[in-house]
Nucleic acid binder design. Structure first.
Lengths: 345, 345
DNA sequence: CTGAAAGCGCTTACAG
DNA sequence: CTGAAAGCGCTTACAG
């Protein structure tokens, strides 16, 4: 009856039954051997382990997930993951998740508009324990759906409020304000804000902080917004800004990627010296920001603490929502004239 | 008997049974409604769909995977995914896989030495349909283990030979040779090879091609290898090379990341003009290679074709192994003196 | 400590 | 086209 050669090639792999037979114990014993904390005598445990090893047995996590209703999978929902900052966050998250005994499922939402919803549905289908949303603007109506399917939600740097979700946010407004102050303290006479048109919450908040601070100080500020968030946009922003009649001598870019483009065009096409003629502040502290050609003064997102927050919330059994706000830290490099040692607070 | 409030909070989500009850049909009917090509009458189909929608039902892919013994998951095994090229490959792969109806599980192997094995075991535990290895040097002994558990293997740019696996490789040697020829044709008198000490297959092969070509042409060539594959290493390579008594006037970097570092140091610390005083060729065509500050002449890996190869092999039912070799294409930008229009072949 | 039995949610022949 | 039944591989009370 065994070894029934069924119609299809049957790519079933070795299961607990095989191991149990080989070890001369029950399937239950096998299960217990691979369940931390379950009670098995050292003797049977040894037999099981030996049989498992020689057969190449691996607990089927699909089946385990089915019975325990906990898959161990966490979905990471992200767009444009080949962007320096995204990639770094993703790497850190995956790493941290693995260390916590979870495994990451990666869902790319670049294609369509409704793709965050699609991604969430995908996550539900695989009964992922949680989904971490790094991109897009999920519709709040999805909250109920997720709750009903036991999918816990974490939103990173997103605006929308979800009932039982964890919201991890940054003090973007404060950073924007600080950027303005730094530029001013370092002697800039005319500051500008350079940002993209893809109005992500984070970018908008940074911009808002900057502009508000200027307004509060009764200093006029140039605002320039173009295209999507990219290096190319940074160049265009620079061109627009520096070919103006009265070009700025200090600019805050809401993203390092744009700052790099702006720096390149400032030097290459307008012959500006940095920081002598122009001060620049970026955001994200991507790897390129520390490259010798840029040495960008920028804000660093506390990636480790963000990951930590996610993982420890996932560990909690309580289903309550939460919102935590983290501080970005200033990284002083060479694109701002005077180092604002005595920056006014 | 229903609604039994069990001991634990029971985070079970809505199942086919619930839908069947709500729609007044059998579970089988529900299953068929969500199985493309199964035969259901339009009437019951509609009832099921309506019930599913209002209940927020999603087929449990864990259970489906269990019965079909095909999870739809493909494991991506990778290290240093926050490196420009890796991130791009990863993004493309995930995207392509999704388009083919699969979903990616991301396994980061940065930590330990044996982590490729650990990653593979993880993949087996989740009964992933296949694993794509982008990093590390998997031990060939794992081949049997994978085969026994029905895990199909794809190795990208890896050296080792696995029995039933698909090997996707690049013509690295040819590129190395071509790099030498280009440098020579463009008038370089003294060429150098700049590479890292982390002897990845790809890098080694590119280096070999370059050096072999020089040898064949009876031209002496400087070989410099330092540290790990990074921007910082590129700078060190530049320092070593350009502070020599007879510095080279043409260098082939086995990676764009290193090329960027080398270019920055060449200009910033040695005052070299590019391409007037120095020609540079990189590899990978990462985003930064096209940035205005670099405009690197480099080789572009055919990422789309690589992804295509993976996906179409996965579609095949045959279990045979295969090895395909793809060509990288030259991207001419501004770091090589004369454009080698009449490059000798 | 150990095993037989029930159940997780699905699919797949098997009858009708 | 439709449903009852068996089975995928695991875990978890339940007895012993």
């Amino acid at each position: 009856m065994k070894q029934n050669p069924g119609p299809r090639p049957s790519r079933r792999s070795v299961s607990a039954k095989h191991v149990a037979e080989a070890a001369g114990v029950s399937r239950t014993a096998v299960s217990r051997t691979f369940t931390p904390g379950a009670s098995v005598s050292p003797a049977t445990r040894a037999k099981v382990l030996a049989a498992a090893e020689s057969l190449g047995y691996h607990v089927n996590h699909l089946a385990r997930g089915l019975t325990r209703s906990e898959s161990g999978i966490v979905a990471l929902i992200v767009a444009e993951l080949d962007t320096p900052f995204r990639a770094r966050l993703l790497a850190a998250l995956t790493d941290r998740l693995q260390a916590a005994g979870k495994v990451a499922m990666l869902i790319n939402t670049d294609r369509s508009d409704e793709s965050v919803e699609g991604a969430l549905r995908q996550a539900m289908s695989y009964r992922t324990d949680a989904a971490i949303v790094l991109s897009g603007r999920p519709d709040a109506s999805l909250g109920t759906l997720c709750a009903r399917n036991g999918l816990r939600l974490i939103l990173i740097n997103r605006d929308e409020e979800f009932p039982h979700a964890l919201h991890v946010r940054l003090d973007d407004v404060a950073c924007g304000q600080r950027a303005f102050r730094i530029l001013r303290e370092s002697g800039c006479v005319k500051s500008a804000l350079a940002t993209s048109l893809s109005a992500t919450t984070s970018l908008r908040l940074r911009a808002k902080g900057f502009v508000d601070a200027a307004r509060a100080a009764s200093v006029p500020v140039v605002e320039q917004a173009i295209g999507e968030t990219s290096y190319a946009t940074g160049r265009e922003l620079g061109i627009a800004l520096f070919s103006a009649e009265h070009p700025p001598d200090g600019v805050f870019c809401t993203t390092d990627l744009m700052a790099c483009g702006l720096v390149d065009v400032a030097r290459g096409q307008f012959g500006l010296r940095i920081p002598e003629d122009l001060s620049v502040i970026g955001f994200d502290d991507i790897q390129q920001a520390s490259w010798e050609n840029y040495r960008l003064t920028t804000f660093s997102q506390p990636i480790d603490r963000m990951c930590e927050a996610c993982v420890s919330w996932l560990d909690e059994t309580a289903v309550g929502g939460d919102a935590i706000s983290l501080e970005a830290s200033l990284v002083l490099r060479d694109t701002v004239g005077l180092h604002p040692a005595n920056e006014v607070t």
